[in-house]
Structures are given as C-alpha cells and as structure tokens.
Simulated assay, not measured.
Amino acid sequence: MFAIALRQEQYSTYILTAQDSQSRLEVVPERGGLISHWSLQGQDILYFDAERFRDPTLSVRGGIPILFPICGNLPDNTYTHQDKQYQLKQHGFARDLPWLVTERVTNDLASLTLVLNSNDQTRAVYPFDWQLSFTYQLQGNTLTLHQRYTNQSPEVMPFSTGVHPYFLTSDKTKLQFEIPAAEYQDQQTGQVYPFTGGFDWSEDEIDVAFRQITGKSATVIDQQRRLKLTLTYGEPYSTLVFWTVKGKDYYCLEPWSAPRNGLNTGENITKLSPGESLETSVQLSATFF
C-alpha cells in the first residue's frame, strides 16, 4: 500500500510511504524541492540538520539538495556568457527556490512530481528560460529521482546539474567504498591521488572529485549500521564528489554532470538546443544486512 500525506508546519511537507517495505520519504517543495528525510524499516538513511533548516537565510545541511545550473562554485562566483559577466553562488539557485507540486501518484508506487520555472530572479544571474521537472518515486527499498530539463530559450543553454545526498553515519572508519574510479582530485588543492578504497579520516575536511569514472553505479557499505547503499546514475552524470567534515555524522556522495567551474571551462557541460529536453535519473537503493 502506498500513500501521500501533507503536513503543515513551517513549510508544507509531503510524506510518501510504502507500507510493504516500511519506507518513508519527506519532501519540502517550498525549500528547494528538498528531500529532507528518507527512512527504511524505521531507520533514517539521510542526515538532516533541523536547526539550519528552520533558518531560511542558511543553506540546508542534510537531505538531498538539488544542484542547478552549476555544481560546486565558480572562481569569485563569476562566469561569462556572450562577453557579459554573471554572478552565481555555489551550487546555483534551484536548492533555494520554491518548487510547485504538479502530480501525485499512489498506485503501484508513491510518486510526487515537482516543477521549477525560470523567472526574473533567475534570469538576472542566469539569462535563460527553462523548466525543471523532478519526480520522486518510492518503491520497495529504492528511491528514484527522475529528472527533466527543458530549454525554453531561443539560444543554446549550457548548464550542469547534480544531487547532494547527505548520508547518516555514526562511524566513518567503518565505511567501505566501491567507486568506479582509480583516482580522485582534491578539490581544494587540485592535486590528483590514486584511490585505494578509503580516505584519511583524520583530516578536518575531505572534498574530492572522481572525474574519471568508469561506471554508472557506486556502493557504500556501512558496517557499523549494517547498511548497504547503492547509487546509480544515468547520462550525463560524469563526476562523483565525496565530501565530509570531521566531527559530523554524515558523508556525501554526489553525482555531478560536470566538474566545478564547468560553466567557464566548458568541461562536460550540457548544452540544450532551443526547445530541447534532457531526461535522466538518479537511483538510491538501501539494504540492511
């Protein structure tokens, strides 16, 4: 049995449930179309900082924020389009804007579709007309994020996109990684290192990008929680970013379609022709063992 309920607190929150798998998803359209919580068998899969969430002036730490039209940051938060400079803050603006709910489905799954359209505020920093449509589907132990990006401008639209899941963990030293890459780049120093399956947990912050990925799925096994997470992503996702901060009970494994500063360098940037749409998906499966 599948159901969708609505809870009204500081923000309207949609609660998707799949009774057979004891799976539950919470979505906050007004706060960037955010997936704030996902639980399975009564256990949280995602980390969530409720205190930061309550302050609309702060970026959210937790859940699954949406990254668009850039991933990461730009030098001086600046990019150039047709000889004009624009300012875009880290990860873009989609995670900060209110999305609209357009469809709810509770037949053989629980599904919620949200839409975000360009407006005067977005055109001031990103001079294109577009529509984003995200459909969150909950079925069994799997969460799927179906995405559609449509260029409604009279010119080619360049962008990158990504999702930024915060996974809950109590002991990072018990994490085991299966990532389809042989090396990663430190996003702070630019240095490239071989990847041998783990990280140095004594560092205050780990922020690395796997830019030469050879497959479309990655797995993390949390031996402390007895939890296996599998992340699967379609085209055009070309980069996996791993990020965590010492002393915090989360790690992030983020599929990006282009690396940091792609809007300036053009590396792996997606370009949609006028009227063209791109459809893709990211899927998360969780299994307790």
Rank of each mutant, 00 (worst) to 15 (best):
M1W: 06
F2L: 03
I4M: 04
A5N: 13
A5V: 06
L6W: 04
E9I: 04
S12T: 14
T13H: 01
T13P: 02
Q19G: 00
Q19S: 13
D20A: 14
V28Q: 01
G33N: 03
G33E: 01
I35W: 05
L40W: 07
G42Q: 04
Q43L: 06
I45T: 01
L46R: 05
F48N: 01
D49N: 12
A50Y: 12
F53A: 05
P56C: 01
P56M: 01
L58E: 13
G62W: 02
F68W: 11
G72Q: 06
G72K: 01
G72H: 04
N77L: 08
K84F: 09
K84H: 14
Q85N: 07
Q87T: 13
L88Q: 04
K89E: 14
K89I: 12
H91G: 00
A94G: 05
A94E: 05
R95L: 07
P98N: 06
P98Q: 04
V101G: 03
E103H: 09
E103N: 09
T106V: 10
T106Y: 02
N107V: 14
D108H: 12
L109E: 15
L112E: 02
L112Q: 01
T113V: 13
V115C: 14
D120L: 08
A124N: 08
V125L: 10
P127R: 01
D129W: 08
D129G: 09
W130P: 04
S133G: 00
T135L: 09
T135M: 12
L138H: 07
Q139M: 11
N141G: 14
T142E: 14
L145F: 11
L145M: 13
Q147E: 15
N151D: 05
E155T: 15
S160E: 10
T161A: 12
H164L: 10
Y166Q: 03
T169M: 07
S170L: 14
D171G: 08
T173W: 14
L175Y: 11
Q176G: 10
P180W: 02
A182E: 13
Q185T: 14
Q185E: 15
D186Q: 10
D186L: 10
Q187R: 13
G190W: 03
V192C: 12
P194V: 12
D204K: 08
E205H: 08
D207H: 12
R211W: 03
Q212R: 12
G215I: 09
K216P: 00
T219D: 09
T219P: 05
V220D: 02
Q224N: 13
R225M: 11
R226H: 15
L227G: 02
K228F: 08
T232P: 00
Y233R: 07
G234P: 00
E235M: 00
L240D: 03
L240V: 10
F242G: 05
G247S: 02
Y250N: 06
Y251R: 03
C252Q: 00
W256C: 07
S257F: 07
A258G: 11
P259W: 09
R260D: 07
G262S: 15
G262C: 07
N264G: 07
T265H: 09
N268F: 08
I269W: 08
P274S: 06
G275K: 12
E276I: 04
E276C: 06
S277Y: 08
Q283L: 09
